[in-house]
C-alpha cells in the first residue's frame, strides 16, 4: 500500500531583506539575501526565525502572538504590506523580498514603530468614549446595549493597528497627515457607540477635512491588504456620506 500523503518538492527560498539600522551612523540601507529550505506549512514568521537562529542573529523584526492577533509583524512582502505570521511561503515565489512598513519610524531592518504613529493618531482623533458625565460613578451598572449593535461595534473593534492599511494607502504615502483607514475606521466605530456622546458635528471637527475622510481617494489598498478583513471600504463610504451631510447641514 502506497503512502497516501505525498510530500511536495521543497524549494530553496531566497529572502532579500532590506537591512538598515538608523541608530548606527555607518549603516547604509541595503538588501541582504538569505537562503533557506522551505518546510511544509512554513510562514514568514517561521522562516525569519530560522534565519535569525541559524544564519544571522542580528536580523531585527517584531513578533508577539504568531497568530495574527497582535499586529506586530506587519512588513512589506514582495511589494505589498501584510502580516508575516499570516503569510505562507507556499503562496509566494521562491524569491521573497521583505522591507519594513513605510510611513512609520524605522527601528531597524523589518522593525518599525507603529505604536508611535498609532498613539499620535488616537490622540488627534480622540479615539476613546467621550461621556458627558463629569465624575463617573464606577459602581453604576453600564447601560444595556442591543446585541446586534454590540456586534457591529465589535466588528470594527477587531482592528489590531498593524499599520498595513496605512502602508498600502497611496494617499497616506503622499500626505503624511492623512489619518488613514485605521483612523477613519475608529471614528466610524465610536460614532456607532451609544456610550459616546459626541455628535456628528463633533466628529466633523476631527475628520471633516482633507487630512480626514475627504482626503481619501478610494484607492482601496487598505481594503485589499487588511489582515483582519475589516469592512474599510464600506465604513469610509459611510463616514464620507455622514460627514458630507454634516458639512452641508
Amino acid at each position: 500500500m502506497s503512502d497516501p500523503v505525498s510530500t511536495p518538492a521543497l524549494r530553496k527560498l531566497r529572502f532579500h531583506v532590506l537591512r538598515h539600522d538608523p541608530r548606527d551612523a555607518t549603516s547604509v540601507p541595503h538588501f541582504q539575501t538569505y537562503e533557506i529550505e522551505e518546510a511544509a506549512g512554513m510562514t514568514l514568521f517561521i522562516a525569519l526565525n530560522e534565519i535569525r537562529e541559524q544564519i544571522d542573529s542580528s536580523l531585527a523584526f517584531d513578533f508577539v502572538c504568531r497568530a495574527g492577533i497582535c499586529g506586530s509583524c506587519g512588513m512589506v512582502i514582495n511589494g505589498r504590506p501584510g502580516l508575516a505570521c499570516r503569510t505562507l511561503t507556499q503562496d509566494l515565489p521562491a524569491d521573497i523580498t521583505l522591507a519594513p512598513l513605510p510611513a512609520f519610524e524605522l527601528i531597524a531592518d523589518l522593525s518599525v514603530n507603529t505604536g508611535k504613529w498609532m498613539r499620535g493618531m488616537s490622540e488627534r482623533l480622540e479615539t476613546w468614549v467621550h461621556s458627558l458625565q463629569g465624575d463617573p460613578d464606577l459602581r453604576r451598572l453600564e447601560e444595556r446595549m442591543d446585541p446586534d449593535l454590540a456586534d457591529r461595534i465589535y466588528e470594527l473593534d477587531r482592528c489590531v493597528e498593524c499599520g498595513c492599511c496605512v502602508a498600502a494607502c497611496g494617499t497616506a504615502r503622499m500626505r503624511e497627515d492623512f489619518v488613514g483607514a485605521v483612523g477613519l475606521n475608529k471614528i466610524a466605530r465610536f460614532s456607532l457607540d451609544p456610550r459616546d456622546k459626541r455628535t456628528d458635528n463633533d466628529f466633523y471637527e476631527l475628520v471633516g477635512n482633507d487630512d480626514g475622510v475627504f482626503g481619501c481617494m478610494t484607492l482601496l489598498g487598505c481594503q485589499d491588504v487588511c489582515p483582519k478583513d475589516l469592512p474599510l471600504q464600506t465604513q469610509i463610504a459611510f463616514l464620507r456620506r455622514k460627514m458630507a451631510r454634516t458639512g452641508l447641514g
Binding site: A103, W117, R124, E176, G247, L248
Partner: peptide
C-alpha cells in the same frame, strides 16, 4: 517621514468651535 500628531489636551466632549464646512462642500 514619520508623522507626529499634535496632542489635544481635552478630556471632555468637543466644544462648539467650528471647523470649516468647505472641505465637505468641495468634496
Amino acid at each position: 517621514m514619520n508623522t507626529v500628531f499634535h496632542v489635544t489636551d481635552r478630556s471632555v466632549p468637543l466644544s462648539a468651535k467650528a471647523r470649516s464646512r468647505w472641505p465637505a462642500r468641495l468634496d
